[in-house]
Amino acid sequence: LRKKEMMNAMMSDEEIYEELRRICNPDDPHVRFERVKQLGAGASGVVFIAIDSKDGSRVAIKDIDLTKQSKKDLILNEINVLKGFNHKNLVNFLDAFLSYDHLWVAMELLDGGSLTDVVTEVVMKEGQIAAVCRETLLAIAFLHSKGTIHRDIKSDNVLLGMDGTVKVTDFGFCANIVGDEKRQTMVGTPYWMAPEVVTRKQYGKKVDVWSLGIMAIEMIEGEPPYMKETPLRALYLIAAVGRPKIPRWENLSPDFQDFLDKCLQVDVDMRATADELLAHPFLKCAMELRTLTPLIKAAQKILHKS
C-alpha cells in the first residue's frame, strides 16, 4: 500500500482516471442504483442511500466529484484501502463505479446513522462509552497492524447499526506507513487533531489514539473541546494548551479518567498505543452493544431521521 500510495502521488490526473477505470466496475451506476435519500455531505463527497437493482439491497453510496478533488491520488488510496481490508469494525466496501467525472463508492449501509447524532442528542452511560471505544479501538488497531493511519477519527466517521454495531468509515485520508515511518502533512479535522499534527511535527499512528480520546469527550460532553471557537483558534489552543480540560472530570470513574489520561498525553511516547488501550480496565465495564439501540432510536426521533 505504501508503494502504491507513493506511485499514485506522482501520477497525472489522466493516469489516475485510467487507473480508476481499471479498478472500477464497468456498470453504469445511474442505471444500477436507484437513489432513495441523501444522508449527508462531507468534504470529499455526498453520501446517500440507494437500492441496488441487482439484488434489491439497500447500500450507502458516496458520490465523489473528481473535478473538485485537488488530490485525486487520495481517492485511489481510499479505494485501495477499502478493497484491501475486511474487518467487522470497518464499513465494508462493496464496489466502485466511474461515471464521467463522478466516482460512486458503494458501501454497506448502517441504518443507525453516525455516532454524532447520538452524542449530540442523548446522554451515554460510561459502559456504553466503553463499548464504543472498544469497537473503535479494534478498528484502529487493525488498521495500524496493516501499516495504515486513519487520521480522521471522530464521531462523524463512526457509523452505527440499529443492533448497536459500531464501524469506522471514511478512509479517504488514510496514510500508509512502513514501521515507524512518520508523516507531516496536516490532515484531519481541527478539533480532533493531535498536538503533533497541529504543530507540524512528524507524526505517526498515535494520532488516532488522541482523536479517540477527543471522541470520548464528545460522548461525555456532546462536542469536542473548543467547538465554540473558530477552527484556527482551536488549533492554537490545542498547540498552546495541549491536553484539554474535561468538564465534570471528577464525576468520571477512576478507570475512565486513566483511559482518557492515556489517550490524551501530549508526549507521544507517553501516549498509549491502540493495542495497549484494548487491554485497559476501563473497557471491562463495557455494556452490551444492544444497549445502544434505544439511544440511536431516541436520537433519530429527535432529529426526525427515523
Binding site: G42, A43, S44, S70, K71, L74, T116, D152, K154, D156, D170, G172, F173, T185, M186, V187, G188, T189, P190, Y191, M227, T230, P231, L232, L235
Partner: peptide, 19 residues
C-alpha cells in the same frame, strides 16, 4: 449556525483556506 457548525466538522488536508 447549522452550516457553520457543519463546516467546522469538515476534514482538512494540508493548508485549509482559513490558515
Amino acid at each position: 449556525a447549522h452550516s457553520t457548525l457543519r463546516r467546522k466538522r469538515y476534514t482538512v488536508v494540508g493548508n485549509p483556506y482559513w490558515m
